[in-house]
């Protein structure tokens, strides 16, 4: 890596900061390289350090300052969280960390999906057995009235539970899910807006 690649990577990683802050950082390192008489030749990264580390440090500072300045605004928290994530992901050690994060999120989604699927299947089974018992109950009613009544009663119970749970699931889908999606989009959408600036 030579000084131009160094500056380019730094600029790239600081994209989320206001333009004048980016420029100040770049000016500092341009001046530094001039003073150190570093030209086109590859620089020794062990001596100079890596732009990713510097950018991480600066972004983390910005995030902390953000939270300290506007502690109660959810908007500023969302963008501070965004900055912290970028700061962590920008660090060279972050790749395994990012991988673990993705794995955890995938596992979480799979687990929630499995629970929902199991719930739905249980409800379907309950409904079907309810209907079947209702039919059996009516047939039995003619031969053994007591048994018939028990079957019909249990059938009603099953069908009732099924209908109740269906209502609950419907409510969850129409109310809770949009809230979650909105929340996620809020965090992501906000960050995207900042990147464009």
């Amino acid at each position: 890596m030579n000084r131009y690649e160094f500056i380019g990577e730094l600029r790239n990683r600081l994209k989320r900061l206001p333009a004048e802050e980016q420029q100040e950082a770049i000016n500092y390192y341009e001046e530094y390289f001039d003073e150190a008489a570093i030209g086109y030749a590859p620089i020794n990264l062990n001596e100079i350090g890596r732009p990713a580390v510097i950018a991480s440090e600066i972004l983390a500072q910005t995030a902390i300052r953000h939270v300290e300045t506007y502690p109660k605004s959810p908007k500023s928290n969302a963008s501070a969280i965004g900055l912290i994530i970028v700061a962590i992901l920008g660090a060279p050690i972050a790749f395994p960390l990012a991988l673990a994060l993705v794995a955890v999120v995938c596992a979480l989604i799979a687990a929630i999906g499995a629970v929902v699927l199991a719930l739905c299947l249980t409800i379907v089974a309950l409904g079907i057995s309810g209907v079947a018992m209702l039919v059996v109950g009516f047939i039995k009613l003619a031969v053994e009235p007591a048994t018939g009544v028990v079957f019909i009663g249990m059938a009603m119970l099953f069908i009732g539970i099924t209908l109740l749970v269906i209502v609950v699931i419907q409510q969850l889908l129409t109310r809770a899910l949009p809230t979650v999606i909105y929340g996620v989009r809020n965090i992501l959408g906000h960050n995207k807006k900042e990147e464009k600036r």
């Binding site: 500092y28 062990n46 001596e47 350090g49 510097i54 600066i58 500072q61």
Partner: peptide, 8 residues
């Protein structure tokens, strides 16, 4: 410290 550390 590395040479770029001081800016932050």
């Amino acid at each position: 410290i590395s040479e770029s550390t001081l800016y932050p």
